[in-house]
Amino acid sequence: MSLVSILYALLFYFAAAVLCVGILLRIRLYAHTPQPLKIPTTPAPATRAGVVMRMVREVVFFQSLFKGCKWTWLFGWIFHFALLLVLIRHLRYFIEPIWAWIVIMQPWGVYAGFAMLAGLAGLWIRRIAVDRVRYISTPSDHLMLLLLIGIAGSGLLMKYVWPTDIIALKVFFLGLLSFDWQPLAPDPLLLLHLALTATLMIVFPFSKLLHAPGFFFSPTRNQTDNPRERRHLNTWATEPDTGSRP
């Protein structure tokens, strides 16, 4: 097997480990950090079921962002939804036999690739063109968009311009999964696409991409508005000594 194949095999094991362990550690940290007070933001549901619905609306439709900025919402939602479709489409490289619903999703995954690029382009233009957004951006915010554009762009180029042998690619990934390493075709575009993807996986737990797990721990969104009905306890507070008027 070629050196490139070995390097890429190692790279993907490393990236997958960093991604999973990194996110799990972060989730553990969030889960173990107490939230002393009730701070849900209006419109806060008064029941647990209402909160679940609120969270679903946020994750699926980006409800608050819709209220906040229609353009960002449009581009951001297109990008994320497209990303989801693309990820689903990619499952075929990791599963054998391929589940029927993934087969059905295949053509959508391709359109989604273009939609993803469009969404990312819109987000980047906004980041550069609007002085307020430009002000709050750090180099990493631009690079993150560039990275995702690179991934989407290289993927689409493989699909339409310089195809790669996807059967061999699938053999490579199934090999990784079963710890029975197989060679990887040394296509420059494929190697670029995979290297960028591994980079994304590695930076995920150390970057703002933590917004994905972080959202679920946001107390302003996941708390129930029932402080009078149910006493919320602060684990680190000392109980007031009752009736101690000096």
Binding site: T33, S64, L65, C69, T72, S137, H211, F217, S218, P219
Partner: peptide
């Protein structure tokens, strides 16, 4: 404070600099 308030930890990590808040 990072150890005492989940809000602070999560809020510091989570901002994606989308800019939706900048004119609010």
């Amino acid at each position: 404070l990072l150890g005492k308030y989940r809000s602070i930890r999560v809020f510091l990590d989570t901002c994606v600099k989308c800019g939706a808040c900048t004119d609010k």
